[in-house]
Amino acid sequence: MIRVLLADDEPMIRAGVRAILATDPAVDVVAEAADGRAAIDLALAHRPDVALVDIRMPRVDGLTATAEMLRARPEAGVAVLTTFGDDEYIARALDSGARGFLLKSGDPRELLAGVHAIAAGGAYLSPDITARVIGRLRTSGLGRATAAHTRAQQLTEREREVLALVGAGLSNAQIARRLGLVEGTVKGHVSTILTRLDLANRVQAAVLAHEAGLLTD
């Protein structure tokens, strides 16, 4: 069972998201918060697998709440769920350590796919957000791409293979099947990659994989 914390200051939004999640018998909403401070406290109390956090909330905003949750529990899976999809919010969400960015205006199936991906140790961006992130990478300039390529060369060949698959959005289990490894080995590779490249989370690793040109598709 995937345990989910839902944090949003609008009761109707919480009710709608909860209804969508309730259609999946593998998902259970274990707590709800109407502000960022409560979200932090409930995350520590309930230790959910996935926290869905709105950006604009009273007392503590969602991005600050995300950073605080991850300082206390670095292994937690936090996804920003919001109506705001501008580049500043995307960048701040990724910098805060979020492993997902989901738009409230998106397809309900994206919400469920994101929850499952994050619970499995992966990352998930709404397709519209992914297209914008990749578009920015393509126009980010030769210097940025060269720097990313240089950083990636610190890794072993196997670690670069794993990084490329992280960049493609695969979970640890999917990477293990693709490379013929056990999931624990993949988890170890991902941990080494994040440490060696000084990355906060899988989303930042995925961005670097794109910038370094590791994805061939």
Rank of each mutant, 00 (worst) to 15 (best):
A79T: 04
L81T: 06
V30M: 10
G180N: 11
V50S: 08
T192Q: 14
A34I: 08
Y124P: 02
R158I: 07
L181C: 09
Y124L: 03
L170F: 05
A131L: 15
V186M: 11
H149P: 00
A113Y: 04
V53G: 07
M57S: 11
I90S: 05
A39K: 06
T192V: 12
V162Y: 12
P11Y: 09
V53P: 04
A79C: 06
L170W: 01
G184L: 07
V207Y: 06
T146W: 11
I40T: 06
M1L: 12
A209L: 00
E88A: 09
H189E: 15
H210T: 13
N201I: 02
V115M: 01
I118C: 03
D198I: 12
D198W: 04
T146Y: 10
A7R: 13
D24N: 04
E183C: 03
L42C: 04
G62I: 02
H46V: 00
T23R: 12
A34H: 05
A200Y: 03
A205N: 02
D217A: 12
L197T: 13
I90V: 13
L163I: 04
A26P: 05
I193L: 05
I13F: 11
F101L: 09
L179D: 03
A67D: 09
R138Y: 13
D95N: 06
L197W: 09
D41G: 03
A31M: 04
V78E: 02
G169L: 06
T83C: 08
A113D: 11
T64M: 10
K104D: 01
V27Q: 01
G97K: 14
L181N: 10
G141P: 02
L94C: 13
V203L: 11
R138P: 09
D107A: 15
R196G: 13
G77M: 06
R202Y: 10
I40M: 09
G106C: 13
G100M: 06
R160Y: 07
P25C: 02
P58W: 05
A123R: 08
R73F: 15
T66F: 14
L142Q: 15
R138Q: 14
T130D: 13
G62R: 02
F84G: 05
G77H: 02
R196L: 11
V50W: 03
R151G: 10
R56K: 15
E110H: 08
I175K: 10
L214E: 00
A22P: 02
R132G: 15
G143A: 15
G180L: 06
P11T: 07
L142D: 14
Y89I: 01
